[in-house]
Deep mutational scan, measured.
Amino acid sequence: PTIVLKVSPEELKALEKAGVEIEKIEKNEDGELYITLTPEALKKAGFE
């Protein structure tokens, strides 16, 4: 199962800087950012 999270541009930068593997980055028509994370990326980021 993949996880989709709504993030701010600042959060996205912080995640990328931390080396979190982001599978997909999407922006909706309201300009909101959503990222898709794999279970492996979540484990690496410390989420179980």
Rank of each mutant, 00 (worst) to 15 (best):
45 A>T: 04
13 K>V: 14
24 K>N: 10
40 E>K: 02
25 I>P: 01
42 L>Y: 15
27 K>I: 13
22 I>F: 09
10 E>Q: 11
42 L>A: 15
48 E>V: 13
8 S>L: 07
19 G>D: 05
25 I>S: 03
28 N>L: 12
20 V>D: 00
43 K>S: 08
35 I>P: 00
31 G>Q: 04
45 A>R: 02
10 E>D: 14
37 L>C: 05
34 Y>W: 14
28 N>G: 13
25 I>Y: 05
18 A>F: 09
47 F>V: 07
22 I>H: 02
20 V>P: 00
17 K>N: 11
46 G>A: 06
46 G>F: 05
31 G>D: 08
12 L>Q: 02
28 N>S: 13
40 E>H: 03
43 K>H: 13
10 E>M: 11
21 E>N: 04
48 E>W: 04
31 G>K: 03
34 Y>T: 09
7 V>A: 03
6 K>S: 06
25 I>M: 06
33 L>R: 02
28 N>I: 07
29 E>Q: 10
16 E>T: 10
42 L>N: 02
24 K>E: 06
44 K>L: 15
35 I>G: 00
22 I>N: 00
34 Y>H: 09
3 I>E: 03
10 E>K: 09
19 G>T: 02
15 L>H: 01
4 V>G: 03
29 E>M: 09
45 A>C: 05
39 P>N: 08
36 T>Y: 11
31 G>N: 08
6 K>A: 06
4 V>P: 03
26 E>G: 05
7 V>K: 00
11 E>N: 06
28 N>D: 10
30 D>V: 15
30 D>P: 04
33 L>P: 01
3 I>D: 01
15 L>E: 00
21 E>D: 10
27 K>H: 13
36 T>N: 03
29 E>Y: 10
36 T>R: 05
26 E>M: 07
7 V>D: 00
26 E>L: 10
17 K>V: 13
13 K>I: 11
34 Y>S: 06
39 P>W: 14
3 I>H: 10
24 K>I: 07
17 K>M: 14
23 E>K: 06
46 G>L: 08
19 G>N: 07
35 I>Q: 00
48 E>P: 11
40 E>F: 02
6 K>I: 08
3 I>M: 09
18 A>M: 13
1 P>S: 10
1 P>R: 11
31 G>W: 03
19 G>E: 10
44 K>E: 15
42 L>G: 02
15 L>T: 01
45 A>G: 10
30 D>I: 15
21 E>T: 07
39 P>Q: 15
14 A>Q: 11
38 T>F: 06
42 L>I: 06
34 Y>P: 00
46 G>R: 02
32 E>P: 03
41 A>Q: 10
43 K>R: 08
24 K>F: 10
42 L>E: 02
17 K>A: 11
14 A>T: 14
33 L>H: 04
32 E>D: 14
38 T>V: 04
3 I>S: 04
10 E>T: 10
25 I>K: 05
35 I>N: 00
4 V>S: 06
42 L>T: 03
22 I>S: 01
1 P>T: 14
26 E>Y: 11
47 F>G: 04
12 L>N: 00
15 L>N: 00
14 A>N: 09
14 A>D: 07
8 S>M: 04
48 E>L: 15
21 E>W: 04
32 E>H: 13
39 P>R: 12
3 I>P: 02
31 G>H: 04
37 L>A: 10
41 A>V: 02
5 L>C: 07
13 K>S: 12
29 E>V: 13
45 A>S: 08
16 E>L: 13
13 K>D: 14
20 V>H: 01
7 V>N: 00
10 E>I: 08
39 P>K: 13
11 E>R: 14
28 N>T: 13
44 K>A: 15
13 K>L: 13
11 E>Y: 15
8 S>F: 05
26 E>F: 14
28 N>M: 13
33 L>V: 14
6 K>L: 09
16 E>H: 13
1 P>W: 09
40 E>L: 03
3 I>R: 06
8 S>Y: 03
14 A>M: 10
36 T>G: 02
2 T>N: 13
46 G>Q: 10
17 K>Y: 11
15 L>V: 03
36 T>D: 01
7 V>T: 03
22 I>M: 08
10 E>A: 11
29 E>T: 08
25 I>F: 07
8 S>N: 07
19 G>A: 06
35 I>M: 02
42 L>C: 05
45 A>M: 05
34 Y>D: 02
45 A>E: 04
42 L>P: 02
39 P>A: 10
47 F>C: 06
28 N>E: 05
23 E>F: 08
5 L>F: 08
23 E>Q: 11
41 A>Y: 02
25 I>V: 11
34 Y>F: 12
40 E>I: 02
45 A>W: 08
33 L>Q: 03
31 G>M: 04
18 A>C: 07
11 E>K: 15
34 Y>N: 05
43 K>V: 08
43 K>A: 13
5 L>G: 01
41 A>C: 02
34 Y>E: 10
27 K>L: 14
9 P>V: 11
12 L>D: 00
41 A>L: 02
32 E>C: 05
33 L>G: 01
5 L>Y: 07
38 T>A: 04
24 K>L: 12
12 L>T: 01
12 L>I: 06
29 E>R: 11
